[in-house]
Each structure stands twice: as structure tokens, then as C-alpha cells.
Design a protein around this nucleic acid. Structure first.
Length: 529
DNA sequence: CCTGACTCC
DNA sequence: CATGGGAGTCAGG
């Protein structure tokens, strides 16, 4: 315990955030530098897939760590070994793991050094481990009764929809089975199947929306599906995850999953709680601050990915739009459609927005056409007009791919690496995927770098003064805090300062604030002056 | 255990 | 020739 507490002694291990949680549950705090092989392995090769100690050991020191397996050959996690396992076996497994840590550490640190990842590790990922640990331990309060009540109304609607659907198709079947639904729609009712999957007819939302008016059962099926999803994922499962003592859900933020450097979130995934649909948004209303004095406070980066693209591409027009504080989608629409900004219609803006996002993802005319519901030819024309207005963006995309082909990897602003060996594949599809990743990863990944760096700085500002507010969640371009309602402007100033100056780009970084008594009803707020 | 469906940025 | 990036969870099969 003394050693673990000693802040002058660095701690090496694998998945140290987990170790912090386990130690904390035993009333032990672990201080000192964290040298985490999981994070190092992730930075060295994020695309590797499994980064368990066993996997790193095979890849980097060519050693197999002994493990205990069940009858079917499945390995037990060391954190969940079967009860009654003899001590000498446990000792053998743990000893081998410790030895693997000892040998892996210099290997991985050397690889980080060689590939220029040291700074990213030390300045961002390492301090972020403790930030995420605190967020997980803090959790966010959820009102189970709000969820249950919404669940009851969903259940009623559900039975209504079921009987409507059965009577419309004159048959009872499992609406949740895409296989059975396909047979009903495309054989019994004789609707024309617009596309197929590997295993049969596709019945996804895109297909059903294209058939919206073709039969009165279609809208009911769409609503049924939305209902089932809300009920199973966002009501039933969420209630189970409320901790009985804290009244909160305590998600796990995974720092070593995504290929681009983003975080991911599980148990529950609070990065995909519904927000777009009115019904779905009701789920958010169950997420609340701990008492009536406090509020939830959200701060999100405005258009961070497009700003990153403006910076990297150095496109004059694109940069100017942000420097002048324009609405970027409106500005793009005006440029592409050749009208003044004041005459841009909603539809023009929506289409320009789709092109802006499409560009980030490595768009094709085909994909854009499908997305905004125009012909392939029209979509091609949009893209051409876009590139003629933003020639720097076009050139940047081409340069990115050329550069990535030379090095076999894509890099972000802070030097995060994604290996892309498929860039030299002779298979067109594989190569095209890699090319889109080469375009997208520097943008998505740089945005991830920026918010991670901001989280670390914010934590530094708040840690000596926890009454200012508590960071609860990160949703890719957004941070959510608990704050004493009357004091949100103090928190806002700190968070704004740290988020907007996390890095310096050639265009400004801008954040927006929202405040509310629950996560579903947040109102935009601004600092005075 | 995989697939296809839905949810998010 | 196939066709926008990154995730997680669920039910069905």
C-alpha cells in the first residue's frame, strides 16, 4: 500500500485505469506516473485489434502467457478466474504477466520513441487515464422512475402497433426478424425489394423509407422498430446499470478501441443516447444533476472537424468563412449555388451541409446522391462546384492520399498514427476504403487529439477546486459537466479558455454552451460580454 | 458467434 | 468495380 501510494514511484502495468478502479474499490489509491502498456500498444498500432497483455506479449516479445481455460478452450480473464483455483496456478499466471510487463515496457517505449509518439503519450494519453478514471467513478445520475414511466407508454404503443401490423398483413409473425419481415413484405405483399443483404432481402430504415407510401404497414414497422430499440437498449438495459448505492450509471470510457483516436464508451454507451427524434430525446430527460441546486452543463466545439480541415487544407475561402464567423454550411451553399448568403434556402443549406460532411468522409458522387436524394449526375455536379470554390480542399485531399501512400500511414496534428497498408492493395475496394480512411483519419483523429488535450487541461484547472464543477461525459466534440447552477459562468470561462486554446490552428476554435435541469432539455446560454 | 437493425458524433 | 468516416447494443438466427 505504501508503494502504491508513493507518488514518486511510477507504476507500470496494463490497463491502469482498471487497476485504479480495482484499488479504489479496496480503499487504496495509486499515485505516481502511469506507464500503461495498453495505451502504449494502442499508440504504436491502433489497428492491431486486441491489445490484451497476452496479445502484446505475442506480438512484441514473442512469448505466450499461460492462462486458465474452460472445457471449451475459452480463456478466463485474470480478473475473473474460477473460484478455488490452486494458488500455484494463480501464481504462475500472475508471475508470467508481471514478467511480460517488465519485458514489454522497454520494447513499447522504444517503439513510441522511434515513431515520435512520446509527446502524445506523456502530454495527453497518460494524464487522460486519470481524467477518465474520475469521470467513470463520478458517473451521472439517472432517474429510474422517469425511464419506467416512459417505458410503460412505449409498451402500450407497442401492443397497438403489433395488432395494427398483424391485421394489415393478415398474419402474425415476428416483426423483429428481418428474415420473416422480408418474406411478408417482398413475397406475401409483393412489394419490390430495392436491395438485398448477404442473407436475403434488406429491410433497413432506408429501404422502408423508400417504400413509405407503398403500403400502410411500412410506417408502422418503422415506428415499431424505433420503439423496440428505445425500450430494450435505452430503458430496460439502462435501468439495470444504475448503481444501487450511487443512483448513477458509471460507464467505462475506453481509451484504446477506435482506429482514429476517439474514445468509446460502454455499459452503458452514453455516446449514443438518442437526441435527434422527439421520442428518443425523452430518454435524455432521465439524466439529471444530483440535486436541485445543480445543473447539467454542456460545452461543445462548433464544427471542429471542418475547422481542422480548413486548417490543414489552407483553403483561402474555407479559412475566411471561419475567420469571419460565418455559418459554414450556409456559406458553402452560397458559394456552390452562386447566390448571396442572404438568399440561401433551407434545402440549399442542407445539401451544402451534406457535401461538407461527405468531403470529410471521402465522398463519392454515388454516396452523396443517395444521401441527399438527387441523381448521380447532379451529385457529381455539386462536388465539382464545391471543389472549384474550394480548390485547396480538393488539393489537400489528393495530397493526403499521396503522402499516406508513401508512408503507409495517416497522421494527426499531435502525431497519432494509423497504419494503412491497404493503400497499396491491388484490390480496388480495399484500396478505396484505405484512401477514404487516409482522408478521414487526420481530421477525425485531430479533433479527438484536441478534445483529449482540453480534457487534461480542464482537469488540471478543476482538480484543486472541485466545487467549480465536475466533468462527467465526453461525446466526441462535447463535454458534459455537473455544476452549481448559479456558478456556471465561472466554469464556462475556464472550460472555454482551455478548449479554445488546446491547440492553435489557423482558424479559431469556438465552443457553445448549454445548461439544463436534465440532459433532454438543455438551453443555449452565453457568457456576458 | 455473426448479422442486421438502431442509436450517436 | 463498388460506392462516406468512427463507434456500441440488441434480437434473431
Amino acid at each position: 500500500r505504501e508503494l502504491l501510494n508513493d507518488s514518486l514511484i511510477a507504476k507500470s502495468g496494463h490497463d491502469l485505469k482498471r487497476q485504479l478502479q480495482i484499488a479504489n474499490s479496496q480503499g487504496i489509491s495509486i499515485n505516481g506516473d502511469l506507464e500503461d502498456l495498453l495505451i502504449a500498444g494502442y499508440l504504436v498500432n491502433a489497428g492491431l485489434g486486441d491489445l490484451e497483455l497476452e496479445d502484446l506479449s505475442i506480438s512484441y516479445i514473442q512469448k505466450i502467457i499461460p492462462s486458465w481455460r474452460n472445457e471449451r478452450g475459452k480463456t478466463f480473464s485474470v480478473f475473473n478466474l474460477p473460484p478455488g483455483l490452486p494458488d500455484d496456478i494463480i501464481a504462475k499466471i500472475c508471475g508470467a504477466r508481471l514478467e511480460a510487463v517488465r519485458q514489454l515496457k522497454p520494447k513499447l517505449w522504444e517503439l513510441m520513441e522511434k515513431t515520435g509518439l512520446n509527446k502524445l503519450y506523456h502530454d495527453v494519453e497518460k494524464p487522460l487515464i486519470r481524467v477518465l478514471y474520475k469521470m467513470e467513478r463520478q458517473g451521472i445520475k439517472v432517474e429510474p422512475e422517469t425511464l419506467r414511466e416512459f417505458g410503460r407508454s412505449l409498451k402500450n404503443r407497442q401492443s397497438q402497433l403489433e395488432s395494427d401490423i398483424y391485421s394489415l398483413v393478415q398474419e402474425e409473425f415476428n416483426i423483429s426478424s428481418p428474415k420473416q419481415l422480408g418474406v411478408i413484405l417482398f413475397e406475401k405483399l409483393g412489394l419490390k425489394a430495392p436491395k438485398k443483404t448477404k442473407t436475403g432481402y434488406s429491410t433497413d430504415a432506408e429501404v422502408l423509407e423508400s417504400l413509405y407510401d407503398a403500403h400502410p404497414v411500412i410506417p408502422k414497422i418503422l415506428e415499431y422498430r424505433q420503439n423496440v430499440k428505445l425500450q430494450s437498449t435505452y430503458i430496460d438495459s439502462l435501468i439495470v446499470l444504475i448503481h444501487p448505492r450511487s443512483g448513477r450509471v458509471h460507464p467505462t470510457f475506453n481509451q484504446a478501441v477506435t482506429t482514429t483516436g476517439r474514445l468509446s464508451c460502454t455499459d452503458p454507451n452514453l455516446q449514443n443516447i438518442p437526441v435527434r427524434s422527439e421520442e428518443g430525446r425523452l430518454i435524455r430527460c432521465a439524466f439529471v444533476p444530483p440535486d436541485s441546486e445543480q445543473r447539467l452543463f454542456s460545452v461543445d466545439y462548433s464544427q471542429i472537424e471542418l475547422r481542422v480541415m480548413a486548417h490543414f487544407s489552407q483553403d483561402q475561402a474555407f479559412k475566411e468563412a471561419f475567420l469571419r464567423g460565418e455559418d459554414i454550411h450556409k456559406f458553402t451553399a452560397a458559394a456552390v449555388f452562386g447566390v448571396p448568403v442572404s438568399e440561401v434556402s433551407h434545402e440549399m443549406r442542407d445539401r451544402a451541409k451534406a457535401v461538407n460532411f461527405g468531403i470529410i468522409y471521402g465522398i463519392s458522387g454515388f454516396g452523396l446522391a443517395r444521401n441527399i436524394g438527387v441523381s448521380r449526375k447532379e451529385a457529381d455536379a455539386f462536388i465539382e462546384a464545391y471543389f472549384s470554390k474550394y480548390p485547396g480542399v480538393k488539393q489537400y485531399g489528393e495530397e493526403l492520399i499521396a503522402r499516406a501512400k508513401q508512408t503507409g500511414e495517416a497522421r494527426t496534428l499531435l502525431g497519432r498514427i494509423r497504419k494503412l497498408p491497404e493503400l497499396s492493395s491491388r484490390n480496388f475496394t480495399l484500396r478505396s476504403f484505405a484512401e477514404r480512411m487516409a482522408r478521414n483519419t487526420p481530421i477525425q483523429g485531430t479533433a479527438a487529439d484536441i478534445i483529449k488535450k482540453a480534457m487534461v487541461s480542464i482537469d488540471n484547472r478543476l482538480c484543486n477546486n472541485p466545487e467549480l464543477g465536475k466533468l462527467l461525459l465526453q461525446v466526441h466534440d462535447e463535454l458534459i459537466f455537473e455544476v452549481r447552477g448559479s456558478e456556471w459562468p465561472i466554469l464556462a470561462k475556464i472550460v472555454k479558455q482551455e478548449m479554445e486554446s488546446a491547440v492553435t490552428l489557423d482558424v479559431p476554435l469556438v465552443v457553445d454552451f448549454k445548461l439544463g435541469t436534465n440532459w433532454g432539455e438543455m438551453t443555449p446560454v452565453q457568457l456576458e460580454g
